[in-house]
Design a protein around this nucleic acid. Structure first.
Lengths: 213, 213
DNA sequence: TGTACATCAGTGAACGCGCGTTCACTGATGTAC
DNA sequence: TGTACATCAGTGAACGCGCGTTCACTGATGTAC
């Protein structure tokens, strides 16, 4: 390893009219760095530029500042989570509402454990480090919308007590998020019987929400 | 405000044999900065030294490096939480196990909401940023020990199904932590009926754990 | 009571690092005539 | 088919910042004789 350099080879300049290509490459590189390092602070303007094979000022050709870049990456993660949960629902092909809720919960925890740094950014970071909008409209495309629908379906199907699904969904979310985030933050905690922990937890939450036992 | 400086006045040098005084002042200053800024990254060696009224190298007279200082501050927060919960239990003077569990949960959420940056450091930070030891021995002085005791008492009292209290306590912790951490991370979320949210959530968790309704 | 000396509690200046961002520029590419 | 020119997609060098940490030092304080 003599004279080895960690920087990527210089990227070929885009052709006229294809400047937008770099935008995608920047987002992909940011995502790649995040996944490789599992450390959000490693995603710096300089690191991204280097990974793309371009100089730092080039980033500013496509993003106003670092936050704008980060928030766009963040937006992709929300979509990633949404897709992950949606796929799991489709695969399970669950017809009854309880199985649907369990599948939903499992997929959510699964996403968190397999993408800890992504999950951390989405749900554990400081409000200031998050995209400025986190309103109901945004929620619908975030996995929470699917949870809300699933709770509604369970109420309609008579397996959960009828009522406003919103508070119930919120509490379920809080319950599932709690386990997910603790598994991420405290990997060395003496977790009991991890094999069934997630299912046990989900079952507890459903029972607490009024599911007859 | 002409010529105003943000740095503290120079601290008087400790007398011979009283060097340990500075150690306490450093820890207090770190705590003060954390509370004033609500931002863990604001607690830098330089900021702490400045707040104490001393030069940065002085810190190294009492702490090997920055981590050692931070971890000691962290340790204080664990004790703070423990005290907070213990006091709430004492004040309520609850004799029945269910009230005890509710009091415990309320006090825990309360601590998190009123000390968000402390809570964040204790339970939401990356494993690498935490003190290296988080074993069972440590847990006992962390609020979790009290939860474990309360769950045991509830089982003994026949209000929760008898069994191993550990998995039940873990799930309760996860449930309560979930709400606490989301309230901290997502203050702009359209939380429903916040007045009763915490109690509703605790009730749901207890019911889920087997409390007869 | 006086003085030399060791020790203690710090200081002052500097190190190298990585960061976000700005600014004037360059050179290849396509287009108009 | 040839050439002048505008535009596009970047570059190179530098800015000022705050950070953790190190190193040689200083000066007040107590102690031994």
């Amino acid at each position: 390893m003599t004279g080895a350099t960690t920087s990527s080879p210089r990227r070929a300049r885009a052709r006229r009219g294809e400047g937008e290509k770099l935008r995608r490459e920047i987002l992909d590189a940011a995502e790649r760095i995040l996944r490789n390092t599992d450390d959000a602070s490693a995603v710096s303007i300089r690191a991204v530029a280097d990974a793309v094979g371009v100089t730092p000022p080039s980033i500013y050709l496509h993003f106003a500042d670092k936050n704008e870049l980060l928030w766009e990456v963040c937006q992709q993660h929300f979509e990633h989570l949404d897709r992950h949960v949606r796929d799991a629902m489709k695969r399970s092909g669950a017809s009854d509402p309880v199985t649907a809720l369990l599948t939903l919960g499992r997929a959510y925890v699964d996403f968190g454990i397999n993408n800890p740094e992504h999950y951390r950014i989405l749900f554990m970071s400081k409000p200031d480090d998050q995209p400025p909008t986190f309103d109901m409209e945004h929620l619908r495309t975030t996995g929470f919308g699917q949870l809300l629908d699933a709770v509604s379906a369970a109420m309609d199907g008579g397996v959960l007590p009828k009522g406003n699904p919103m508070p119930v969904a919120v509490k379920m979310w809080a319950g599932v998020h709690g386990l997910t985030s603790l598994l991420i933050s405290k990997p060395d905690f003496p977790w009991p019987d991890r094999a069934h922990l997630v299912d046990d937890h989900l079952t507890m939450l459903l029972r607490g929400a009024g599911l007859p036992t």
